[in-house]
Design a protein around this nucleic acid. Structure first.
Lengths: 202, 202
DNA sequence: AAAGAATGCGGACCCTCGGTCCGCTTAACG
DNA sequence: CGTTAAGCGGACCGAGGGTCCGCATTCTTT
């Protein structure tokens, strides 16, 4: 097995770098303003260390993003309703989108940085595929809903980092208002269909 | 009036640069692969000329994009139905989105390049605001549709260049199929609402 | 515990690319 | 045809991502 455990200082530096990057992204306005040299400096290590630990810029970003996203993933995969897997699609889809929106609101800069430095499109990022698959599967279970594939893309597009940033940051739409609008939109997409007139219960 | 007419060679070079950029974007896969030096070389002029003509990279991109988009804008503002202003929102909204989708399909690389080099978010680009305003206004006229503002953003997000590129380019979804999916999604968004059961005519 | 091996560190270095500058060219106009 | 200034080109600059390699630190072995 080629797996050797990493040295202690390496692990520590890795953490320091993640923390430094996080801090800098939170502090700076534009993600491009955060240089790798600056991150290394903030962490108190050399550039070489950074590259050894993460390979390149996207690598670092992905690592940070993955770390931050972990709790959400957890909550979706094994958490309690309405996010958890036991919830029926009709409620779980809106819950998921809301969770994603909240996540991006809480990690605005970081999400922005990843989606725009992600080397081209965010659609190649593994986590995108993850959410898309999940959403797609859930949507496919909703009766009367066709094209779950495209619909999943479209719904995810509604919570893209730069749109969220634009609305929350530039236009100062308050958090709860944004969530409400997204919820309304999601409901509109899910509740449509040919036989809407008889579904008034619950 | 401070407006002096430009010299003949200047105008010619400007055109040559636009054409060169167009060609290179069409040829190259990644928009980042197209450097300004390459564009200048392709056009047979020096870099200085390029910068004199367009100021900077985004400037060139915007100019190119605007030129390409002009016909669409024209068709929307003064063309025949279903794109023109005489069409009622219910039909005009899908028509507009379809036109936008087709445009991005026909100008994939270019649209990609603009949206990702547009210095941060595409949401600051004037043309985005243009389409958003128009869509917003149209949506507001549709009875039973709330949050026209957010809905407009969400619908536009469904035809973003990188998503289109992902679907048409990476996943090889054929043009007509994509258009159909978008149309279905749009219809779903528009046709929803509380009093769906009585609208069978047209 | 000491010594050898291997892993990791740091920052000088390189390269590419957007953008600037300035002396020369050339269109425009009288 | 001469004057003028708009325009041209490409050498040059600075910034930032990524590489490299001699030195330091940690792990392993006896």
């Amino acid at each position: 097995m080629p797996e050797r455990k990493p040295r202690k200082d390496a692990a520590r530096n890795r953490q320091a770098l993640l923390a430094a990057a996080d801090a800098l992204f939170a502090r700076c306005d534009s993600p491009d303003g955060v240089t790798l040299a600056a991150i290394a400096a903030e962490a108190g290590v050399g550039k070489g260390t950074l590259f050894r630990a993460f390979g390149d810029r996207p690598g670092l970003l992905r690592a940070l993003y993955a770390a931050r996203l972990e709790p959400v993933k957890e909550a979706v995969e094994a958490g309690p309703p309405p996010l958890g897997p036991t919830t029926p699609p009709q409620q779980r889809v809106p819950a998921l989108l809301d969770a994603l929106l909240c996540f991006k609101l809480d990690n605005r800069r970081l999400a922005l940085a990843l989606e725009e430095t992600g080397n081209g499109s965010p659609y190649r990022a593994e986590h995108y595929e993850h959410w898309h698959n999940l959403l797609d599967t859930m949507l496919a279970r909703i009766p009367g809903l066709t094209d779950s594939d495209f619909t999943a893309h479209a719904l995810l597009a509604a919570v893209r980092a730069d749109l969220v940033e634009h609305l929350a940051g530039n236009e100062r739409v308050p958090r709860e208002r944004l969530r409400a609008k997204l919820a309304a939109f999601t409901a509109r997409v899910l509740d449509s269909g040919p036989m809407r007139e008889l579904a008034g219960d619950d």
